[in-house]
Amino acid sequence: MPDKDHKCTCSEKPLVPNIVEVIDIIDRTPDVKSFFVKNPDGNGVPFQVAPGQCGMVSHLPIGEAMISCTWQENQEYLEFAIKRVGLLTDELHQIEIGQKIGVRGPYGNGFPVNDCKGKDMVFIAGGIGLAPLRSFIKYCFKNRQDYGKITIIYGSRSKADLCFKEELFELWPQEPNTEVFVTIDNAEAEWDGHVGFVPSYLEEINPAPAGAIAVVCGPPIMIKFVLQSLEKMGYNDDQVITTLEMRMKCGIGKCGRCNIGSEFICLDGPVYYLKQLRDLPPEW
């Protein structure tokens, strides 16, 4: 949420990362891996995150990128689910357990978990867009009594590209008052679930807007059509939350490039209510 008077939460040298050790790597899809990191002495983490916050991940000899950091109940390690899309992430995908990397953060404002208390939650994600929402989903399940019905609608290009399969198919559907809907873009031999794009599936499922909050993250084109669908379904702009992505270098609102209007996404975002985005230039 935009907060014009940030309290400084950084170290004395905000651009210098903390060195951490990669303690585990899990293949989520053919091009998404989760990296788990801890302080090199094995004790704890350099910083704690709220659901939706990000961390700058440095493979020191190569580069840095802003990555959503998964919220954990016991903040014993940090998890970053990273899709292989470019130079840095390509190199990251080649590292092995034991590698030292850098992290700095936490950056940005997380999801408004308190504002959403008492609401029915509708999480809508596409592809790697589930990674930031997963933090909020996990938070809701840890504080189950604070939230109403939980509906999770998730899609990806193919079955192989579905992230966090164990949670999607085994853990989350067992939670009380929870429904999980999964779709893939095109039919496949070993898939007997729903086929189609997320926006049309969302309209088909049609979760009621009364007392609900929709949280959306995915590729820009998906977000665009999901927002249109939600509007059609009767969701107001103050019932829709999304989390944005822009290229970032500093993470602290200085280097310039992640602005939309006078907002810096790294510092003032990345989480916004749709009604806040409507006041910004349409560059999101």
Partner: peptide
């Protein structure tokens, strides 16, 4: 500004340098 890295084998440094919003790479995502 931009933040970049310069390595010679095992040694190097991270530095920052003036950048320009006029350049295509400035806001191009991975």
């Amino acid at each position: 500004f931009d933040i970049q890295v310069k390595m010679w084998g095992e040694q190097g440094y991270r530095f920052r340098t003036w950048d320009s919003c006029m350049f295509e790479e400035y806001s191009r995502e991975a």
